[in-house]
Write a protein that binds this DNA or RNA. Structure first.
Length: 529
RNA sequence: GGUCCAGUAGCUCAGCUGGAUAGAGCAGCAGCCUUCUAAGCUGCGGGUCACAGGUUCGAGCCCUGUCUGGAUCACCA
């Protein structure tokens, strides 16, 4: 859609530093040409080769005549003439040397150039006839690997994941369209104490229910038991405190928590019964996630599981210990000292030898490198983890991994609601499925009220509502600068007027309608003037 | 407290490599439906670009400081 509307403005002055996002278009050819002629002009008129940074060409503001504007201020030190005179001389040169430039005018230090109609018609025809316009076919070489989504298996996807998924998937597709091979990967956090909590709660109070029995998505069912654990756990703490125990002690020694910890230990010891339960419940969750991803239009080339990478992380820590990059404290815990880099000491292994988040991420990064040898390894992760990624890169560098510099954290801001931040404890988290349902219902209601599509079959109507609601959601979220905290207003997001996805869809529909009616009445398109 | 990020119209957001009079949408007001989809269009009002210095021919954008908000500095992930 964006490519079709040609909304992006490209930068022709120098080859862009980050060529992953560079897509050549015919329109740019004239911009490049203008720059070349400008360079020639300066050479011929003033006898100098200017630095590229002095050559500034931009689109002409709509209130002036012309399509492209040369900013002459930076050139004055070369021309040693006043702005108007310099612009006048350059403009005359353009007319003489370039058939594409038909006219020019000078306003203050701005030289506005008019490009011939036949040139624009040529561009337009190319866009019209090239159905791959704006896309470059895949080049050879190492891929760009991009990780996004990264859910936990103890709760369903929420609004924060939606921003993450849409950003990650979109960046992947944009990069892909520029010809760079892309691997979209997901990292599922499928192990740890939080998973054991839902498992334990299901064992105790689940009565062997399954998603089939409760007619519920698997991720929702498992999430419910995670919540149930927390409720029962709080009751236990309260009782312990009431019986005179210290609150901190109560939190760490509530029977339920101890039981969950035991279960984690059993899991690590590969207890068959626990592993079976773990497999079963995770499968439920994955089925649920798959449905959500599919509806959202999100996909992956490969899914990593932390249960399969944390051991590799541990071996990397061992490696670092041997080379002296890490050190062991008296209690047996392993650390990396980053104070000389302005950061703190970082724990890598607990005293009991179990791994932490960083340990796992080291392993995952190594595995990705081994799998793909990527030129760039992008992580789409919220900005609350900026520090984590600074540390990750630094530690990998200390371990002598040359590819540490290939890691890039695509950091995005939190999504807030009109009533404030989403807080799971306060039940203000917006569930991804619920949100899509709600928007679907609004699309349906609004459409039915307008009565425009009464002749649609149920299938057609369903497709329409799906397109409208997802278009609204995606556009609303993607139009905001990723790094900024954004406000998600459910009311406004499902508004079908103004700067919204549905409005763009509507515009597209009207254009199609014009073309259809033109064809029906036998009008032929002319590609020339 | 240290580090990082943000602050632009009543609200939500654009603003490209520093370039001409800072732009959209929403909300408000005034118009427009026998002809292309009114889920629309046209017009009006609305700004100390958080503040103060600095660099520059030129600063919303770069630098320094201040204020405000957020994140982070866990044997959570």
């Amino acid at each position: 859609m964006v490519t079709f509307l040609n909304l992006s403005v490209t930068i022709p002055v120098a080859e862009k530093a980050n060529d992953y996002f560079y897509v050549a278009k015919p329109k740019e050819m004239i911009e490049k040409k203008i720059l070349e002629i400008l360079k020639d002009a300066i050479g011929e008129l003033y006898g100098q080769q200017p630095d590229n940074s002095l050559l500034q060409v931009q689109k002409t503001r709509p209130e002036f005549q012309g399509e492209y504007t040369v900013v002459v201020f930076p050139l004055l030190k070369i021309s040693r003439k006043n702005p108007e005179q310099t612009a006048q001389e350059l403009g005359t040169f353009f007319i003489e040397k370039s058939p594409e430039i038909t006219d020019f005018n000078v306003i203050k230090g701005f030289l506005n150039l008019s490009v011939s109609q036949s040139y624009w018609l040529g561009v337009f025809n190319q866009m019209l006839t090239d159905n791959q316009y704006g896309f470059i076919s895949e080049k050879q070489g190492n891929p760009l690997v991009i990780e996004y989504s990264s859910p936990n298996t103890n709760k369903p996807l929420h609004l924060g994941h939606i921003r993450n998924n849409l950003l990650g998937w979109s960046v992947a597709e944009i990069v892909k369209s520029s010809g760079t091979p892309v691997k979209k990967v997901n990292l599922v956090n499928d192990r740890g104490i939080h998973i054991c909590k839902s498992m334990l709660a299901w064992q105790k109070w689940g009565n062997q229910v399954t998603p089939e029995i409760t007619d519920q998505k698997g991720d929702k069912l498992v999430g419910d038991y995670y919540v149930r654990f927390d409720q029962e756990y709080k009751i236990e703490i309260k009782q312990l405190i009431e019986s005179g125990q210290d609150p901190d002690w109560a939190k760490n020694n509530a029977p339920l928590l101890l039981e969950a910890k035991q279960m984690l230990k059993k899991w690590e010891d590969e207890d068959p019964e626990i592993r079976e339960l773990w497999n079963k419940m995770n499968r439920w969750v994955y089925d649920g996630f798959d449905q959500t991803y599919e509806r959202m239009g999100i996909d992956f080339d490969k899914i990593y599981y932390e249960s399969q990478t944390y051991l590799l992380g541990k071996s990397l820590v061992e490696e670092g210990l041997q080379t002296g990059v890490f050190y062991k404290k008296e209690d047996g815990s392993v650390w990396c000292d980053l104070t000389s880099d302005g950061l703190d000491e970082k724990l890598l292994l607990r005293a009991d030898g179990t791994s932490v988040y960083m340990t796992q991420d080291l392993g995952t990064a190594q595995l990705r490198y081994d799998d793909y040898h990527p030129d760039k390894l992008i992580y789409v992760v919220g900005n609350e983890q900026n520090y984590h990624f600074d540390v990750l890169k630094l530690i990998l560098k200390k371990l002598g991994k040359s590819w540490a510099s290939h890691i890039e954290h695509l950091s995005y801001g939190m999504v807030e609601l009109p009533q404030g931040k989403m807080k799971s404890r306060e039940g203000t988290v917006v569930d991804a499925d619920d949100l899509m349902d709600e928007m679907y219902q609004t699309a349906k209601k609004t459409t039915e009220e307008l009565g425009k599509f009464d002749d649609f079959t149920p299938d057609e109507a369903h497709t329409l509502y799906q397109m409208l609601s997802l278009g609204a959601l995606k556009y609303f979220i993607l139009k905001v600068d990723p790094k900024k905290t954004m406000m998600f207003n459910p009311q406004e997001s499902i508004d079908f007027t103004g700067n919204t996805g549905p409005f763009i869809q509507y515009t597209h529909a009207r254009i199609q309608s014009v073309l259809r009616k033109a064809t029906e009445s036998g009008i032929e398109f002319s590609h020339t003037c």
